[in-house]
Deep mutational scan, measured.
Amino acid sequence: TETRTFTDEREARRFEQEARDNGKDVQVRESNGKFEVRVK
């Protein structure tokens, strides 16, 4: 599991989409204006 934290939602979404395109299981959590993207 890899976790990346972004402050920019667009960057978080781009990373999320890229991971999904690669067939990964992705979860995005938002807290305090930060976006935590977990990739399995």
Rank of each mutant, 00 (worst) to 15 (best):
S31F: 13
Q27R: 08
D8S: 04
E11G: 02
T3I: 14
N22K: 13
S31W: 10
T3M: 08
N22V: 09
R10K: 14
N32M: 05
R20K: 10
R14M: 11
D8V: 00
S31I: 15
E18W: 14
T7D: 15
R20H: 06
F6V: 05
R29E: 09
N32K: 08
F15T: 03
V39C: 03
K24Q: 11
T7L: 12
T1M: 10
R14N: 10
V28Y: 10
E30L: 10
D25F: 11
R38P: 02
R20L: 10
R4M: 11
F15A: 07
T7V: 11
T5W: 15
T5L: 13
T3W: 09
K40R: 13
T5C: 15
T3V: 14
T7E: 14
R13P: 03
D25M: 11
E36T: 04
G33I: 00
R20N: 04
E30F: 11
E9K: 04
D25H: 12
D25R: 09
E30Y: 11
G33M: 01
R38F: 11
E2N: 09
Q17D: 07
T7N: 12
R13W: 03
A19D: 01
S31R: 13
E11I: 03
K40S: 15
T5R: 09
F35L: 05
F15N: 03
V37F: 00
K40F: 09
V28E: 01
V28P: 01
V39R: 00
E16M: 10
R4A: 08
V26H: 00
D21Y: 07
R20E: 03
K24N: 10
R38K: 12
D25C: 14
R20W: 05
G23Y: 06
N32T: 02
R4Y: 15
E9T: 01
V28H: 03
V28R: 04
R38G: 06
E30P: 06
N32L: 06
E30R: 09
R29Y: 13
F15L: 05
N22A: 15
G33Q: 02
A12L: 04
E16L: 06
F6T: 06
E36Q: 06
R4T: 10
R29T: 14
Q17W: 05
G33C: 00
R10W: 15
A12F: 03
Q27T: 13
R13M: 08
A12M: 07
F15V: 05
K34E: 10
G23F: 06
V39P: 02
V26D: 01
S31V: 15
E36A: 02
G33A: 00
A19E: 09
F6M: 04
T5D: 08
V37W: 00
T3K: 09
R29H: 12
E9D: 03
F6D: 06
F15G: 02
G33F: 00
